[in-house]
Amino acid sequence: MKSLTLYLKFISIYLKCRLEYRVAFILDILMPIFSYSINYLTIWIILNRFSSIRGWDFNQIMFLYTINLFSYGLAGIIFYTPMRSLDSLVKKGDFDMFLTKPMNPFLHLINRQFEHIFIGHLILSSIVFLICLGNLNITWSVLKVIWLIFVLFGATLIQGAFMIITGSLSFFYTNSTSVASSILNSLRGFIDYPISIYNKGLKILLTFILPYGFISFYPSKYFLNKSNDEIFHYLFQYATPIVGILLFILSYKVWLLGVNNYKSTGS
């Protein structure tokens, strides 16, 4: 609770500082909106020409993509910049600062930086989501809405966990985060489309080793009433929140391992 109020305080300071440069602030938010609109456009071009991929039509793929984008945005606001900054903190030895404060270094690092750029992701994905809803025949019930919130929560934890793990890599390898995060981006590319289009090996990879499939693919199957033609159990549709929590715990363990491995450069 205490760290939550602290977080809100940090955010308000951050926003005040950023809003000094209003034009830059707005551009920062517009940029991802434009960028991801282009991604939506590429999906549209393909689906406009071919009408469906393995039984998934345009709106269904948009739904899939939107869960991915929304959870990525939410996780990005909280975890992206702190984890990216870890690289230089470790290299310069500035990470000492976090170890000497009377606060959990993990919480402190995350509290300290917030990333407004990802607000753009949230805005765009919310808009697309609303458009999608009009075109998809999902009969909504209270239970389904609550489940959607749980799914988004789980998906955000999965996205966040991957950011934490790649960020923690900089405790072991210098200069690795930027490349690691571009790998994450390309992995995220895997789930732009339903993972049923991939071969068996990739399906196993995206389910058990890098469980990206749980971010959008498996939960979408539930919402869109897709028949289970996969090699995996149908219960996977409901697993997102559990996978999210487990993966997040794992990522925190990796972080702790990294902190223990940290040796200050002493400057």
Binding site: S182, I183, S186, G189, F190, Y193, Y198
Partner: peptide
């Protein structure tokens, strides 16, 4: 990274 995106 490159190989992953090629596979996609």
């Amino acid at each position: 990274h490159r190989i992953a995106s090629l596979f996609v």
